[in-house]
């Protein structure tokens, strides 16, 4: 009998199969429109995410800050200001109170900083062995404002791709800690993007934004190219790489384009306003390394190409499942 594997949760092709299995069972034929959150009539934006991470605390954050930032970012990239949050806590018997309190404190701090209100929640304690310590689920609710129509469908040839910060830092941090690497200067980029992205919203030429989480920058670009039926070309030498994350990837044989970030957004903007967008992003501390990394093309619809540091060009694809360290 075929069973689910970890790879089904990694955001790549296996995840797509899992999602379509679920969607197919619901009335009205819901389709995954591949946006980060749903925008309901009246500009109400809703998203829900489950969080599991090993280790629960890592350099630059913990599961508490992650669960608020992650859901808030899913709203922010569609131009919706995060307002409310509902929190589900599944905790394993034997889990230390002190740790739970610590993670909830970090969650609370992010909410306070963003003005998000916790409005409802649920707790479940499950017998030992039935959960890996702590699982959190957050449903975030927000409201769209200046730019209600942000989304993949706006992307058209000629548009410019902007990246707000180095990709893959969260993923590299988790991988390093899982495989016992001590890395100077490596830290997750876990952060709430709203304060920075909010400043971009007045730009008329703003088309679409996405946070490069599970599956990494590569996955975001591939999904854009596929759904908007355009080509995308980026230049490896223009990506603002984080040196520490790259070293981890080199060492473990992982592809940095497939590593998750938790405070890094890709932005599509019209060529006329590309410089303005870059300027605005750079004015915010979260975007100080922002960079224009490529553009949308008419050629090669559905494909993403990267001009490599050596001058070659190749296709970028989504990861298949969990990125595993390689010796070979």
């Amino acid at each position: 009998m075929e069973t689910l594997s970890i790879g089904h949760g990694a955001g790549g092709r296996l995840t797509e199969e899992l999602v379509s299995l679920i969607l197919g069972r619901f009335p009205g034929n819901p389709v995954a429109d591949r946006e980060d959150c749903a925008v309901l009539p009246g500009g109400i934006a809703v998203t829900i995410d489950g969080y599991t991470v090993t280790p629960l605390a890592f350099e630059g954050g913990d599961i508490g800050s992650l669960c608020i930032c992650g859901s808030a970012n899913d709203l922010s990239v569609r131009g919706a200001k995060p307002l409310y949050i509902a929190l589900g806590v599944i905790v394993e018997e034997g889990f230390p109170f002190e740790d739970l309190a610590r993670f909830m404190t970090s969650a609370g701090e992010v909410c306070r900083a963003l003005g998000i209100e916790l409005v409802t929640g649920d707790t479940k304690v499950v017998p030992r062995g039935q959960a890996d310590g702590l699982f959190l689920t957050t449903c975030a609710i927000g409201k769209t404002g200046a730019h209600p129509g942000l989304g993949t469908r706006n992307i058209s040839p000629g548009d410019v791709i902007l990246l707000t910060s180095p990709p893959g830092m969260h993923g590299a941090t988790i991988a390093a800690s899982r495989y016992g690497l001590k890395v100077n200067g490596l830290s997750s980029d876990c952060a709430a993007l709203w304060p920075m992205l909010e400043t971009l919203l007045p730009l008329e030429g703003l088309k679409c934004m996405r946070d490069c989480t599970r599956g990494g920058l590569g996955t975001v670009l591939c999904e854009w190219a596929e759904s908007a039926k355009v080509g995308i070309e980026i230049d490896e030498t223009l990506i603002p790489w984080d040196e520490a994350s790259i070293s981890v990837c080199d060492l473990l044989g992982l592809d940095p384009l497939h590593m998750a970030g938790e405070g890094c957004a890709a932005v599509v903007v019209s060529p006329e306003e590309a410089e303005a967008a870059l300027e605005l992003a750079k004015n915010h501390p979260l975007g100080k390394r922002a960079s224009i990394i490529g553009s949308v093309t008419e050629e090669h619809p559905g494909y993403v190409g990267i001009h490599t540091a050596s001058g070659g060009t190749r296709l970028v694809d989504k990861p298949v499942g969990e990125e595993l360290p390689r010796i070979c």
């Binding site: 044989g253 592809d255 050629e299 090669h300 559905g302 494909y303 190409g305 060009t313 190749r314 296709l315 970028v316 694809d317 298949v320 390689r326 070979c328």
Partner: peptide
């Protein structure tokens, strides 16, 4: 299976079609 296996490499970087580049 392996990321560097020749079939996976061809699949990964060519999305199952012909490499346009």
């Amino acid at each position: 299976v392996s990321g560097e296996g020749s079939c996976a490499a061809h699949f990964r970087f060519s999305a199952g079609g012909d490499d346009p580049w």
